[in-house]
Amino acid sequence: MLRAEPVLAARGVSRRYGHRRVLFDVNLEILPGQALLLVGPNGAGKTTLLRVLAGLLRPSGGSVERRGSVSMVAHHSMLYDVLTARENLRFFARLHGVARQRVDELLEQLGLAPRADERVAAFSRGMTQRAAIARALLPDPELLLLDEPLTGLDDASSRVVLDVLAALRDRGRAMAIASHQLAELMGLVTAVGFLKEGRLLAVEPTDGRGTDSIMGRYRSLMAHG
């Protein structure tokens, strides 16, 4: 059987901040339809890795090859507080060369349509996060990178976000998610990558394993990896 071409291939990626090395020789491939969860303790290099994969940070060593568009949802919304959700999305749509109709579709899909003409500053954390995800989905990216996408969201907002991401995965889009919320994301992800002190120790398919099994593997790798 032919193996699908990866949408992203990182080879020997390392990254330094001054003298401090935060990523060491990371090798990673992300395939279409794959939802990769990156887990690791605070400071393991998850955010740095996502920023390098997105092209926002230049790797100090190694290379990242991307096929197709890459988008990202980070800790920060990347939105302008004083503009409305619609104005924000229309601005980014213009940069991506995306039709205005797509903005309206995404506002509807993420449940933001009723408050689309309010300033983002007036939004709750959950609504801001949904607006940030709408921004990231504007170009219908081949690969979506998400850094703690569920942090601060209530159950209803989490459900909306997870449903949107699941639909994206089912359409063959790839994603890499850095998160500590393993249990909430287990229904979505298809593989788990374990990061420790800047090293990607293993990438394993979930293969129907439960949260406890993944957590057991995580603890084992963090203790002995």
Partner: peptide, 17 residues
């Protein structure tokens, strides 16, 4: 400074322009 708030600059840098 307006780009630093919420790291909106990253959103622009991710666009294919």
């Amino acid at each position: 400074l307006m780009e630093r708030e919420n790291r909106a600059l990253d959103g622009i840098l991710l666009a294919p322009v």
